[in-house]
Design a protein around this nucleic acid. Structure first.
Lengths: 149, 149
DNA sequence: GCCGTCACCGACGAATCGACGGAGCGATTC
DNA sequence: GAATCGCTCCGTCGATTCGTCGGTGACGGC
């Protein structure tokens, strides 16, 4: 789908605050709310906008620790292993990568103990698991949901 | 802030679709919309809800490639280096970590060429930069914005 | 000149937002 | 046990927004 400047402006606004009323978006980009409505619908149908999500502070809901985990999996059973990994509670993202690791994952846990358990009792026990390295996140310097559209 | 089951249900709904009308949330959790309103306000003020963001498909806006980058920075000038890194367009997340790398970053670029340029011309040229390893994301197996509340 | 396409808009009824005051209720105090 | 407080929930209401539809004007093809 082709996006023009107006579409991109709308995306910018909704990336920053997805609950902005369309009438307010319309005011800012100097168009009618009906037009904004049309364009947002079009972008949703085309899959440009994949959804709208409330961002929750992990610490406030009991996730005191997070880690980035590099994984090696046995060749030939990657898919199987990944399916299992997806199902583990606390595993937020799973990426296949080039380089030192086959898979990079982002995990959240309540505390260091829970993280240890998650890694040793669940991840390391999976069929197809070869080895891993856990990099505990000490702090997040910068994190944005917004792509520079 | 203490969250009860009702709060968590509201969070679940808004994490999944942040544009769900409060009246609809109210119907689903069997309470009045005024109550939902009250609780959402409370959670926003307490910082439990940090914001609402439209999720945009990176490929649809011209980011055809993404990588996870491990970085070593010179001791004593971490902050300085991180500030510079934050300002680089396409750098989406920056985490301080234990383990093999001081910093893990997630970067987006238009294509392989743009990624190479981003890494060699911008990141590697930064004061305080020591060395890095780029793991290109071949695919994302699983990715959710939703924490298991 | 005619027609199709496209983007945009005005308008409108239905639904929602956002704010307020008050009801209900358990705990505390006197 | 009466009064008071704190807390949660809700009814209500005017202002705003949603979501839709038909219509207008610009543009290009034939």
């Amino acid at each position: 789908m082709e996006l023009d400047d107006t579409d991109r402006e709308i995306l910018r606004i909704l990336q920053e605050d997805a609950r902005t009323p369309f009438s307010e978006v319309a005011r800012r980009i100097d168009m009618s709310s009906a037009t904004v409505h049309d364009r947002v619908n079009r972008m949703q149908e085309a899959g440009v906008i994949e959804g709208y999500h409330a961002k929750v502070d992990p610490r406030e809901v009991g996730f005191g620790i997070s880690a980035i985990v590099g994984l090696r999996v046995e060749q030939g059973r990657e898919q199987d292993t990944l399916d299992r990994l997806s199902a583990v509670e606390g595993v937020q993202e799973i990426h296949l990568t080039t380089g030192e690791w086959d898979v990079m994952a982002r995990v959240y846990a309540e505390d260091a103990d829970a993280l240890r358990e998650l890694m040793f009792e669940e991840v390391a026990q999976m069929d197809g698991f070869a080895r891993s390295q856990t990099m505990v996140v000490l702090g997040t310097e910068h994190e944005t949901e917004e792509l520079p559209v």
